[in-house]
Amino acid sequence: MGFKNSLIDYRDNKKEFGLDIAKSKLICRILFSIDKKFNWNLPFKKYWIKNFETKEKLVLEYLEENYNYILNEYINSCLNTDKLEDSNKVWVCWFQGMENAPYNVKLCYEALKLNFENKDIVVIDETNIKEYVHIPNQIFTLWKSGRISNQLFSDIVRTDLLFYHGGYWVDATCLFFKKLPEMDSKFSVFYAKNLIDFPSDYNYIDIKKWEAYFIYSKKNNLFFKYLNDCLIEYSLNNKLLIEYLLMNYFAKIGRENVIYFNTQDKMVPTNNTQCEILKRSLNSHRDEFEISEDTYFVKLSSNEVYSSNKDSLFNKLLQKNKLNNEMENL
């Protein structure tokens, strides 16, 4: 992002969120950009990383102050867990339609079908979304107008689907290379947790503790109703997105304040610890990286090109899915 755009964002953030948040976001954006140019090796990290901790604190305070009334509804209500129901659904979303998706997304979809072969996989796109969700028309209008980003809208969609239907939400760029154990009888909620450190993790709140690109939930889990309520209220009341991973902030607030949400989180074991760091070794030799037993998928980028060399780690994962021969047809 250019200097001029950064100043425009600073001005807009100051107007909507106040000076402290605007200044903190600008500083962090500059530091993140410089660190990326240094290949994530900017010196004296233990000193400058404190700016990101300050930003998280300020954003959390803003959200707690302005949306505490939603949280209180869940703190003070009796959370009925008797209505939790198993679900056979797998939700994957590409708004433009899978036929128009880039190569990596199509590849991930083929792998998904192989590893979730006994599940009901539903691809959500612009043509069928209203058949499944309970989202207010005003939110659709704001999304179509561009005031709500695709990122925020997809978070509203995923929390809606998980609450009203349950099942698995799998981001379209998650490449599964082996089958998951059955979740239905073991967990009311499950997500990638306790990830191994990766270079840019400091920029995203709780990114190693709670990953939203792969989630399983039973139907009627109020954790996702809480998140959906927060995201919709935020969208109706704010013109700007305060942080890219807004849902992670609301999730952290919920886990730390609602006993039932916290209890659910503690029951989720460490899993898929390498799903981020693995991406950074996909072009390496297949034997240079040992994949942990708890890791079932890797998070790709939608348009990044990965090595087709037969000895690459990426090719090894494709062989696990027997996808090598199908790649040319995607």
Rank of each mutant, 00 (worst) to 15 (best):
Q274G: 02
K322D: 15
N329C: 14
L60M: 06
E304V: 14
Y47G: 14
E110W: 00
Y226W: 02
I291P: 09
Y226V: 00
I75W: 03
P43G: 01
L236P: 11
K25Q: 14
E293M: 09
N39G: 15
S149N: 04
S77H: 13
K23D: 15
L231W: 03
N271E: 00
I139P: 09
F224H: 03
Y260M: 13
D294G: 00
N309L: 10
K113T: 00
D160A: 00
T270P: 10
L107Y: 02
Y109M: 07
I253L: 05
K55P: 15
S200A: 10
N203S: 05
I291F: 11
N104K: 01
L63R: 01
L278P: 06
A192L: 09
T159N: 12
H285V: 02
S188Q: 03
E65A: 06
F116H: 04
C275I: 04
L79I: 05
K23M: 14
S235I: 01
I121A: 01
I139F: 06
W210F: 11
V268I: 10
N100G: 04
D287E: 14
V59P: 07
K219R: 13
R158L: 08
N88F: 01
K106C: 01
W169Y: 04
P43L: 05
I205R: 06
K179T: 05
Y249T: 02
L31V: 03
S235A: 02
N228C: 07
E243F: 12
E211M: 05
N72C: 12
K36R: 13
K144A: 08
I70M: 07
I75M: 07
N309V: 07
G146A: 03
P102C: 01
F190Q: 13
L60R: 02
F250A: 03
E288T: 05
K89E: 12
F177E: 13
I215F: 06
K14G: 11
L161W: 02
D287H: 10
F187I: 13
L42A: 00
F52A: 07
K266G: 15
P136D: 07
L31N: 05
M267G: 13
K316G: 15
L240I: 05
Y10L: 15
E293A: 09
R11K: 14
A212W: 15
E85V: 09
Y132T: 01
E233T: 09
L227H: 00
V90Y: 03
T159K: 08
I34K: 02
E182T: 10
